[in-house]
């Protein structure tokens, strides 16, 4: 557990210190050899600058020297190879007591399914000092799940599961970044890992069962609007983003790509959230992920109530 340095983000997982040790071993080894090469070059350039008085030796060769500078670097890189491979195996094999999360990459958000079945978007809440295994896949393109503070990264690939694991050693919020180029929203495909103490995490798991009875639908919808990342593509102020604005949409006619029109009522909104590709509004691309199955009926009711209010 260590704060950020000039070269590295904070060390917030069990593997981070090991990876950083190898990083700095290579860093100082390379610095040494680099200074050696540059030092000799500079010395030769200054010492043997061409002058009027010319001196010259015959051609020379030195096989022992050649062998020395072949063998020493070879030994050093073999050390780096073994060290790196062992670290990689540690990253590949999750401990048996790891708790499992399912993460799906979609254009352009991360959908996280907690062990209790609760689904959140771009937010992942995990306990401190507990191995966490992520079973990773993609719904559309190749994405890559990267948490710099944990030093873990793995590609999310359609039709295939990849896994990664980490054990957080520092409470706090850490960035999730997508590191496989995936088009317009690539640099906005961000999330946060929230690391909580085990007690707080247990409370959180209990509380994330859905909308508490005391919260009105619109308010819950406003929360979902942000947490499910609708906000990335749909504005509330009438401006055009990747998707149509929510402002004034309810109760007004909408023109689709195929030229047909319909009035946006509750059924239209519900259908467009669940199966966005079925009716695409003219002027936009069919890029929104499918939410059928990942939002409960109550959540959809809440979002519809929220959108209705945006007039």
């Amino acid at each position: 557990m260590k704060d950020a340095t000039i070269q590295m983000p904070p060390q917030a997982s069990t593997v981070a210190p090991h990876i950083d040790n190898l990083y700095y071993f290579i860093f100082w080894g390379c610095t040494f050899f680099f200074l050696l090469i540059v030092g000799f070059s500079l010395y030769f350039v200054i010492r043997y600058r061409r002058t009027k008085a010319e001196r010259m030796e015959k051609a020379f060769h030195n096989t022992p020297l050649e062998i020395t500078w072949t063998v020493i670097p070879t030994i050093l890189v073999m050390i780096v190879f073994v060290w790196g491979f062992r670290g990689y195996m540690d990253l590949s094999v999750a401990p048996g007591n790891a708790i499992e999360y399912y993460v799906t990459g979609k254009k352009w958000l991360w959908e996280v399914t907690d062990p209790n079945g609760a689904v959140s978007i771009n937010e992942m809440t995990v306990p401190l000092n507990q191995p966490v295994k992520i079973i990773l896949r993609s719904q559309d393109l190749i994405h890559s799940f990267f948490v710099p503070a944990f030093r873990v990264k793995q590609d999310a690939i359609p039709n295939r599961y990849n896994t990664l694991w980490f054990e957080a050693t520092m409470p706090g919020d850490f960035d999730i970044l997508c590191t496989e180029y995936c088009g317009s929203g690539h640099s906005g495909m961000l999330g946060k890992v929230h690391v909580l103490t085990p007690e707080k995490w247990a409370e959180y798991q209990k509380a994330t069962g859905g909308r508490p009875a005391t919260v009105p639908l619109e308010d819950w919808g406003a929360k979902l609007y942000a947490s499910k990342a609708c906000i990335t593509c749909h504005s509330l102020d009438g401006s055009k983003k990747t998707g149509p604005t929510f402002k004034g949409v309810f109760g007004h006619p909408v023109t689709f790509k195929d030229g047909t029109t319909a009035v946006a009522d509750e059924n239209y909104l519900r259908h467009s959230i669940q199966e966005p590709g079925a009716q695409v509004v003219a002027g936009f691309d069919p890029v929104m992920p499918v939410f059928a199955g990942s939002l409960s009926d109550d959540d959809i009711d809440a979002l519809v109530a929220f959108i209705k209010k945006q007039q």
């Binding site: 990083y23 080894g29 390379c30 050899f33 090469i37 990689y88 990253l91 873990v152 590191t179 496989e180």
Partner: peptide, 26 residues
């Protein structure tokens, strides 16, 4: 000589598996 040495040496970071996991695609 100066720049290619840096280019070559930084390749060692990327060849080392566990370090590459952190650095790749950055």
């Amino acid at each position: 000589l100066f720049l290619f040495s840096i280019g070559g040496l930084t390749g060692i970071f990327l060849g080392a598996l566990s370090v590459d996991v952190h650095l790749t695609d950055t």
